[in-house]
């Protein structure tokens, strides 16, 4: 008992020592130590910083074809990848893409590890509290898919009520299921399964462990084609808005510039051409 009581002050001392260490001027001799509550780089003037560096560092989660994936030669390929390179060209900077887990993207952006995120990401209210979003570069549709031999027939999203369903964790689709089916008592909570990646859910669909998977329409079509699954319903009801690029909170100059470029790419047909290239509806 006595020993445990002694460990706590020691623990606090260790934590203080660690934070003190980080703040020593020796670590960054030319800059005053930043306040712990703020990101390393001020969001204001982000655009100027990127231009000065000549490089836009973009985070993605490269396991989501046809938006983003890695080809056999290790190159980042997909709709998002082509789009962000086109944006980089307009900005006049080089684009450096970094692969990381989807769940780490927002945190990396907040901490200034990356300048932007492009990962077929939607601007949910929850995410919007932490980071800012550009205008959507593509409006979203979702799809319900089932096994190839499924007998389920769907005409509206609510037809999923009571069925075993898989979603990708932390996604808009998961939120919709929780809010509209689980919270209303239409589907028991233990019939909803959250996966780290959508392709894992698709595998369980094929093996019969799930009856339905709800996910973004485009990768759903791809998955269905490759694995012999059946697309049951394509809908905008479960989707919110569209896919946007996430940027650091308060980076208003960067947002203005990106919004302008994205609108330009939509208007001049570049986005449309890319959609066709990657087989997106």
């Amino acid at each position: 008992m006595k020993k445990q009581m002694l460990v706590i002050p020691a623990l606090i001392a260790v934590i203080l020592a660690i934070s003190a260490c980080g703040g020593t001027p020796a670590a960054q001799p030319t800059q005053p130590p930043a306040q712990p509550t703020q990101p390393a780089a001020p969001a204001e003037g982000k655009l100027a910083q990127i231009r000065a560096a000549g490089k836009l560092i973009v985070g993605t989660s490269a396991d989501y074809p046809p938006y983003e994936s890695i080809d056999a030669n290790g190159n980042f390929v997909g709709f998002d990848m082509d789009l962000i390179r086109a944006i980089g060209e307009k900005l006049g900077v080089e684009v450096e893409i970094r692969d990381m887990p989807f769940d780490s993207l927002i945190a990396s952006l907040q901490e200034g590890k990356i300048d932007a995120v492009i990962a077929a990401m939607q601007a949910t209210a929850e995410r919007d509290e932490k980071v800012d979003f550009t205008i959507p570069y593509r409006m979203t549709k979702d799809a319900f898919i089932g096994a190839g031999n499924t007998t389920i027939i769907m005409t509206k999203p609510e037809d999923a009520a009571g069925l075993t369903i898989g979603v990708q964790t932390g996604t808009v689709q998961e939120g919709w299921i929780q809010k509209n089916l689980v919270a209303k008592g239409l589907t028991p909570a233990d019939k909803v399964f959250s996966y780290e990646r959508a392709d894992q859910a698709a595998l369980d669909l094929a093996s019969g462990r799930l009856q339905l998977v709800l996910m973004d329409a485009e990768p759903a079509l791809e998955l269905a084609k490759q694995n012999g699954l059946k697309v049951l319903l394509v809908t905008e009801t479960t989707a919110e808005g569209g896919k946007s690029i996430a940027i650091p909170e308060g980076a208003s100059d960067l947002k203005a510039e990106l919004d302008r470029i994205i609108q330009g790419l939509i208007d001049d047909g570049t986005v449309k051409a890319l959609e066709e290239k990657h087989g997106l509806p």
Partner: peptide, 23 residues
Amino acid sequence: VFAVGVPEILRRAQQVSARTFEP
């Protein structure tokens, strides 16, 4: 370490699996 974006063996396997659907 992939959590912070270091592409080690497992992550590369995930990337292949996502592309080829051959987990």
